[in-house]
Design a protein around this nucleic acid. Structure first.
Lengths: 270, 270
DNA sequence: GTGTAAATGTTATAATATGTTCGTTTAGCT
DNA sequence: AGCTAAACGAACATATTATAACATTTACAC
């Protein structure tokens, strides 16, 4: 393919994968209150049927409402909380760890979900839970679960960290003290070789400590890359938690040492 | 290999090492909302399978999501709420009222912003405030002010009402008790002719009552259409507030009666 | 060179997306 | 209301893409 052809593709929005096309359709609503099937078909150079199917998908996600000849925005408010584009590593391991953590959750429980990418993956898996109460300082978790019919979301109060979709500070700590939960899930920015648990933010560390106190049992989720790392603030040790879930790439020697501290160690294949 | 050969290779995007190709792919997202496997395979002159493997790697470490035919960016996270029904009436009046309310706010203050469309307009005007602390149960207000450099946002905790972008419940009430503020701004769903203030939600009414208690002074914002309306829950009367801001379309007789209750009445031209 | 590991290509099969046709429904018009 | 042209959606046919398993090439150390 020549360079000119590539440029033309970029400009003409041709040959986009379907999900990208659907995103583009959504963005059309920013400028106009409604879109037309025929117009979009011309613009993306696909058949009208394809556009209809795209609109059906978007309607299913409750973003838009179909009309004859096109679609309009549903009356809804979209709140954007941007988050710093931290690069996520070991996405597959985190997903696997979250799947294992999901098994610890039972209907009717009240659970605490900490801030973090791994706990966010767990939130995704909890969407179909029944009669669950989720207490969280993370706007991302709240966002993920807000439409889950079987889940009541309680957002902890607190200061919104700039550039980060979560709440911290003394208010969060006080607010957390109001609750009692069956199970707390926490991430970590580092797990020392002696079992110390580290956060990169002092305020998060304080919150994590309280989480464990108000929850009957607690569970730390961390992929193998965290083991041996330290960070700014130590919020406790693995001796304080009931479960530690990591992936099998974690060094066996460390896991043995951790097990002696008390928590049940669970490893998953990434 | 000669330097010239290397240059030619780079220019044609052929024979790139995998990491370099993946970086190139990431840069494609700057220009396009999504990439296609087939397009990239042609462009880099590698097989589609290689591109798929590249995308799998990128999915693990960057913020992209694989789709059929390619991948899309997954950068933004948004909280979406069903926009609870009623289209906004008297938008101009609400904006004017908010402009007047803005004048009551001074640098360095801690203020409480209630849930509601009028208070949300006020939040928009507070974006350029300096050294301000805003305490609110409204996710919409928090979203609006999260990037304001001179404003610290404290979100009250609580249950996320399904389809409503705000927090209520006992947790919100407890959380609110932790604070003291200089000034509270509240909306209202109705103002009785005798000065009673009404909310359409019982839990919101309880929260509003506490807001006035923890704030030194309070201010009710309501356009003229609310006067003479009643709603489910009475949260107090205008005798409890310090300012009442409405638009000039409000009946003069009612305003006179309200003034006798104590609050300073401010009217604005819509 | 030779061995080894990583990267890439190939193939077969399953899954998904798209286009087309056609009978039915809808919106807009007189 | 009744008419008409457009739009819809179901069903099928076709084309594209994904995945896994295996074969091949490349890169690099020795």
């Amino acid at each position: 393919m020549t360079f000119t052809n590539i440029r033309r593709q970029i400009a003409s929005l041709k040959n986009l994968p379907s999900a990208a096309r659907q995103t583009q359709i959504r963005e059309r609503f920013a400028a106009r209150p409604g879109v037309s099937v025929s117009g979009l078909a011309l613009e993306f150079e696909v058949s009208a049927m394809t556009i209809r199917r795209d609109l059906a998908v978007l309607e299913d996600q409750a973003h838009i409402q179909r009309t004859h000849g096109g679609a309009v925005l549903t009356q809804r408010m979209m709140l954007e909380f941007d988050y710093r584009g931290r690069r996520e590593n070991n996405g597959a391991a985190k997903k696997a760890i979250a799947r294992e953590a999901r098994k610890l959750v039972q209907s009717g429980q009240r659970i605490i979900l900490d801030t973090g990418t791994t706990t966010l993956e767990l939130a995704v898996l909890l969407k179909d839970a029944l009669n669950l109460t989720v207490i969280t300082p993370s706007l991302a978790v709240a966002s993920e679960l807000q439409h889950a019919p079987g889940v009541e979301v309680i957002l902890l109060g607190g200061v919104i960290r700039r550039g980060s979709p979560d709440l911290t500070g003394p208010a969060t700590e006080h607010c957390l003290e109001l609750f009692a939960a069956d199970l707390a899930f926490q991430g970590a920015d580092g797990i020392g070789l002696n079992g110390a648990i580290y956060n990169s933010d002092l305020r998060l560390a304080r919150v994590d400590k309280i989480m464990r106190r108000v929850a009957t049992r607690s569970c730390v989720l961390a992929d193998h890359s965290k083991i041996g790392q330290t960070a700014l603030a130590r919020n406790g040790t693995l001796a304080d938690v009931d479960f530690f879930i990591t992936n099998t790439a974690a060094p066996a020697a460390s896991l043995k040492r951790f097990a002696r501290l008390g928590p049940k160690i669970i490893t998953v294949q990434p």
